[in-house]
């Protein structure tokens, strides 16, 4: 489903998450309201333990909230079971992780083919090959993740995240494990995808420089959304 630039790709209302610890419960998130438009870029920032990653997981449908609603591309995730949410993820969502999470037994090409194969795409190999080549990894197709550098691994992970043409790309500290130069290259690629494919970009980061590249920043503190700042449009 394609939405116009003005329609929200993701809508979060009254979102809360708590963990039952027996006699008491631990509130991790509460009362989060957030809307992200199609093609927009949002950085979720905050200190460690503030609840950023939990929020990202809930918005991506990896977990269910204790309260509130999450609407992803017009579909209400909080009413769905895990398999229904998995289907939504396979249609709309891409992920980039801090520690890449490539499957070690698969080559770079096979890792990128994976989401396409889950969608039963007939031309998974061709698409993955094309994308990796465009990312400058044509020579590394048959290499296994441990044989690749950190930057190469993250580029493969990025290719895997976008190869199926997701409408929303979630990135969790995408440059956290990379040196500054390699980190910059990955950031450029992320925003290129955001710009050229009109992919909504939601990223969690500690890096203020990276956060400042996003159109909007959401500051989380002690599980609450404290402030939303609008930046200049990403160049």
């Amino acid at each position: 489903m394609l939405l116009s630039k003005k329609e929200p790709a993701l809508r979060v209302r009254g979102l809360g998450k708590s963990i039952d610890l027996g006699e008491r419960s631990l509130q991790i998130l509460q009362g989060i309201d957030l809307e992200i438009k199609q093609g927009e870029s949002l950085a979720i920032v905050g200190r460690s333990g503030s609840g950023k990653t939990t929020l990202l997981g809930l918005m991506a449908g990896l977990d269910l909230p204790s309260e509130g609603q999450v609407e992803l591309m017009g579909e209400s995730l909080d009413q769905m079971d895990e398999d229904q949410r998995a289907l939504v993820r396979s249609k709309h969502v891409g992920f980039v992780f801090q520690s890449f999470h490539l499957l070690p037994g698969m080559t770079a090409l096979e890792n990128v083919m994976l989401p396409l194969e889950l969608q039963k795409a007939e031309d998974a190999r061709e698409q993955a090959l094309k994308l990796l080549t465009s990312l400058g990894l044509a020579e590394r197709l048959d290499q296994f993740p441990p044989q690749l550098s950190g930057g190469e691994q993250q580029r493969v992970a990025l290719a895997r995240a976008v190869v199926s043409g997701p409408t929303i790309l979630f990135a969790d500290e995408p440059t956290g494990n990379l040196d500054s130069q390699t980190g910059k290259e990955i950031i450029d690629l992320l925003f290129e995808v955001n710009r050229t494919r009109n992919t909504t970009l939601v990223l969690v980061t500690h890096d203020n420089a990276l956060a400042s590249l996003c159109e909007r920043q959401a500051l989380i503190e002690d599980g609450c959304l404290i402030e939303q700042r609008h930046q200049r449009a990403a160049s």
Binding site: L62, A86, R89, S90, L103, L114, L118
Partner: peptide, 11 residues
């Protein structure tokens, strides 16, 4: 990883 990318549990 497979589930994150949308593979159903049944699969």
């Amino acid at each position: 990883i497979l589930r994150t990318f949308g593979a159903p549990r049944n699969l």
